[in-house]
Design a protein around this nucleic acid. Sequence first.
DNA 1: TCTTGACATAGAGTTTACTCTACATTGTAT
DNA 2: ATACAATGTAGAGTAAACTCTATGTCAAGA
Lengths: 125, 125
Amino acid sequence: MEYSIGDFSKLTGLGIHTLRYYEHEGLIAPERNASNRRCYSDKDLTWIEFIKRLKDTRMPIKEIRHYAELRAAGDPTLSERMEMLVQHRQALNEQIAQLQEHKTKLDEKIEFYRKEIERVNNTNL
Amino acid sequence: MEYSIGDFSKLTGLGIHTLRYYEHEGLIAPERNASNRRCYSDKDLTWIEFIKRLKDTRMPIKEIRHYAELRAAGDPTLSERMEMLVQHRQALNEQIAQLQEHKTKLDEKIEFYRKEIERVNNTNL
DNA sequence: TCTTGACATAGAGTTTACTCTACATTGTAT
DNA sequence: ATACAATGTAGAGTAAACTCTATGTCAAGA
């Protein structure tokens, strides 16, 4: 299937402006039809979903662009791309560990609040 | 203990400019000495560490300011603060779940790359 | 006393990632 | 054929969170 930018926008949940911006930043390069309209493919869809993952996991656009460039260069860059992903997995593992620690502390804090509220209530009997 | 802004900066890992910015944004309000210099306390240290947690878990500064205002208002706002934290815990749980899904997909992708690299290597024997 | 370094404020500048505006062109329904 | 909605480009504007600059004050060591 091929999609106009409007359809692709609905499909991905990204705004039309954002899609053009991503193209300008070298993240994605959809085909063009005879009248210069963008034609997004299903491959583009898979790719943009992966870009969304990278973004969600805090990879900056610059780095995603670098990955996109390697990807465009094909097979010879396979191992370099894999290295990037392995690095990124490491970063992601650290993020998760960090968030889990934050969660523990937040749970403790909430428990403290619960007790404190109870205490204040009892004081004002 | 009391700390000058320079000491406090080293202690927290936040730049001096950032500390002043946080104060300007209503996140923290250190005491001042006779000559108007900021005097950060150990309480401020605990508080800023908590702010760092909130930031790390993607709470925007506006919201942290709101929490800071409630905190400054004391006991009457205890339950409202707890509600905020409970809400934020929910958001944090979702973040963690999301990141774990991203991790799974990333692992799969890396495994795909590993096989692909092997395949390409064998093709070129 | 003099100098130097830390600190003060106010406001400008930077970075990242969009988001929007202006204006021209094209595709489609009447 | 005409209107109007979608798309194109170029570039300006926005929001968040810093980060830096200019200029002035103050306190402690040589």
